[in-house]
Design a protein around this nucleic acid. Structure first.
Lengths: 186, 186
DNA sequence: TTTATTTTTTGATATAGATCAAAAACTTTG
DNA sequence: CAAAGTTTTTGATCTATATCAAAAAATAAA
């Protein structure tokens, strides 16, 4: 379970904590294009991608807007609803056949209570998610479409290889036509 | 102290809690254009505006970008650094002569410990800040400059009356020239 | 393997906003 | 009150991206 490897880079995992994690965490599989979460449902789960890829997206004026991708080794959830316990505006969808480890927020709370060192996990997830949102805003506001694509090529090339270009374009905040032109070097 | 009025709409304030708050909270005044925080400092304080106005801003490629304004009754801080205890990239500046109530994060932690009901305060601040960041992203990405100005006119007209137009333009993500054209109806 | 559907690319055109410059209006300083 | 400095507005021009349409390429279904 790759999740343990990731966690042990964040916090020290005692034997007791490992037992608790093992009992709390479940494994789930989804087929390509299946939904893990649909908008308007409550988002109670934090997903860790063991294999495959996910995206979070919502509709804006009848267009699909992709907010995030998660590949192997990444956490994914509809973050704000997860924290605030409100209905999600986002959908979460498998882009490929996917295996995820799942932790729900009741169990996460219990982990925080029983193992205070796991609060660091929560804080790191919060900070990571928050800084990604800020980065997204900065990219949309200050970088050209071409720059955004170049940055993604440098930082997360696997996404470009594994994700349909329509989803990629919506994540970058541009149309498919514009993305094609950038890729063609025009 | 208007802060108590605001707080008592969020949580029930016991006598003990009121005493603790009174001893923790300090009052500060700043002159117009004075800085409450400069970039690269640690941001340990949560400000509540009793009178006047504040803005949070940072520099991007030698331009000032305003992130937020706070008027009477609003909280203001450089949020992410406040939570993550890292150096701030933002400055906080008084736009007018200002009086603020100040709570620092050590005291806030103590409040959370001694009065668990105050965790709700922290959660509400977090949610408020987060949803404002998402709203900002949505505005920048999907709304025209004119729509952004119109929304602000409807939702927070006092800002337009009290804030220099240069700061307003940078908050809206447009140039001063464009803001002038919108205001002129061209 | 062929046909149908979907995804991606290319062509042509329109536009919101940036940029640069200068003028006008307002505020600060002496 | 006048001069200097700053803020705001207006004019002219340019450009990145959207939009609409159609063609090409790739994938899915029969």
């Amino acid at each position: 379970m790759q999740l343990f490897n990731s966690l042990s880079q964040i916090i020290n995992i005692s034997t007791e904590l490992e037992k608790a994690l093992t009992s709390f965490i479940s494994k789930k599989s989804f087929k390509k294009n299946e939904f893990l979460l649909r908008a308007d449902e409550y988002c109670n789960s934090l997903y860790f991608v063991e294999k495959g890829s996910l995206r979070g997206f919502y509709f804006h004026e009848e267009k699909e807007i992709t907010n995030w991708f998660a590949l192997e080794g990444d956490f994914g959830t509809s973050f704000y609803p997860f924290i605030s316990k409100t209905r999600s505006y986002e959908n979460i969808q498998a882009l490929e056949d996917v295996e995820v480890s799942v932790l729900n927020n009741t169990e996460l709370k219990k982990l925080y209570s029983d193992f205070p060192e796991t609060e660091k996990l929560g804080r790191i997830i919060l900070e990571d998610y928050y800084s990604k949102l800020e980065e997204r805003l900065i990219n949309i506001q200050f970088k050209s479409a071409k720059e955004r694509y170049s940055n993604l090529m440098e930082n997360r090339p696997q996404i470009i290889q594994r994700v349909p270009l329509g989803h990629l374009a919506s994540y970058l905040g541009i149309t498919q036509e514009t993305l094609s032109r950038i890729r063609a070097g025009n």
